[in-house]
Design a protein around this nucleic acid. Sequence first.
RNA 1: GGCGCGUUCGUCUAGUGGUUAGGACACAGCCCUCUCAAGGCUGGUACACGGGUUCGACUCCCGUACGCGCUGCCA
Length: 441
Amino acid sequence: MSSEVRVRFAPSPTGYLHIGGARTALFNWLFARHHGGKFVLRIEDTDTKRNTEEAMAAIYEGLEWLGLDWDEGPHVGGHYGPYLQSERTELYEGHLKKLQDAGHIFEDQGAMRFRSPREHVIVDDIVAGKIDFDLTNPATHPDMTIRRPDGSWIFHFVNVIDDLEMKISHVIRGEDHLSNTPKHIEIFRALGASPPRYAHIPLILNRDGSKMSKRDEGARLEYYTRRGYLPAAVRNYLCLLGWSPKDNREKMDVGEIIRIFDLKNIGRSSATFDPDKLHWLNGEYARELTDADFYNLAVARLKSSGIKLDDFPEQYVRAALQTCKGKINTFDELPAYCGFYFNDDFDYNPEGVAKYFTAENKARLKAVRDAFSALEKFDAADIETTVKSTAAKLGVKAGAIVHPTRLAVTGSNVGPSLYHLLEVLAKEKVLARIDRALGIF
RNA sequence: GGCGCGUUCGUCUAGUGGUUAGGACACAGCCCUCUCAAGGCUGGUACACGGGUUCGACUCCCGUACGCGCUGCCA
């Protein structure tokens, strides 16, 4: 085991990257980076009909988005390529020949099958521990098919051949493969090779305890990219699913995770994906964004939601977005949160109307409107002073002015700091919006 | 059915024979406060069940239940 650490992520191109697959890739990547080894990407596209450029692109984009760079694989090459199984047929044929010559293969209705040695195989798994599999009974462990009559290859065989040829030192994969592992080991041995070390990581489940499948909305990584999640947050969250630093830390820098990552700290039981916790963690990261990063991400998000930011001066947009920083957890919340900056013709929240557009508030709204109109400088500090003095004059708390004003100017009960938001909107627009509101109650 | 794996708050987890079973998310309340967040404080909820072993079990052993995986010419 003194040789180089080489791990791989070997997805099949199904059109998207599964969140569980992403975590498997992440653990492999962390392990490689921790040990200064190599992270190999191999595409298992033996099912050529289903395999498309777009499907592979989803894998590449997903890994890149998460920041999981591969040292060997598609686009980057490497000494053990090609890295698409569809291009490795000769290799497979060569090994099949070796097995045939050694008498391990028999034909069954055109298919090639591997004859099990019928022994106990002990899998010494880094995560799962030592497990003794009894393969002596053909009734329960039939000889596996490795090649179909049409010449296409079965996963178990090509997976093993590739791991062997690519000199993979550690196979880190989902626990759904644990029961397949003894069969894989049989092939390694039949080829006179020693198998890699194995580490089977627990599966990710849904809220209801079922296995996360493609049908589930949050099962695809793409779901989170679309919803305005931050890759660092998703990556951090995925680390916490099944792995723990053991010291109560949750939000952790990726460099720190690489430093302390250890397969031995991976748990044995499956984990349920918790969207709430991811949402929280994303907020933690969002609040730490630099102003520039926040601005760029926010602009992209608003534009994709159809808001025509180009119609507004950049300084206005910048100031508007600055009032939203730290207030949202994911960027898909932003259009609803700050849309009022870019649309004069918004609706008023019905509950807010019932609560705040009352007769007595109308007088207050008028009063503060007049006070605003007399203001020469319309900045947050002056606005705050004005609101408070108006409230004092009327003998009410500031809230009695603030709430109706916010609703009148933004249409919502929640939003950025009122004083700052009014400053950004500027006096003219604020007065016009208050007038508009005054007209409806 | 067979084989394998698992089971600590609703969720993610810490815990390796003696702890008031800790943290985080979520939830509730309070504080702060121009709303909402953020932040601070407080609160409730967990060792699947039954037997052992032991002076003593969440921790070790056996069984049961439940869940998941594999059992394909899917990966």
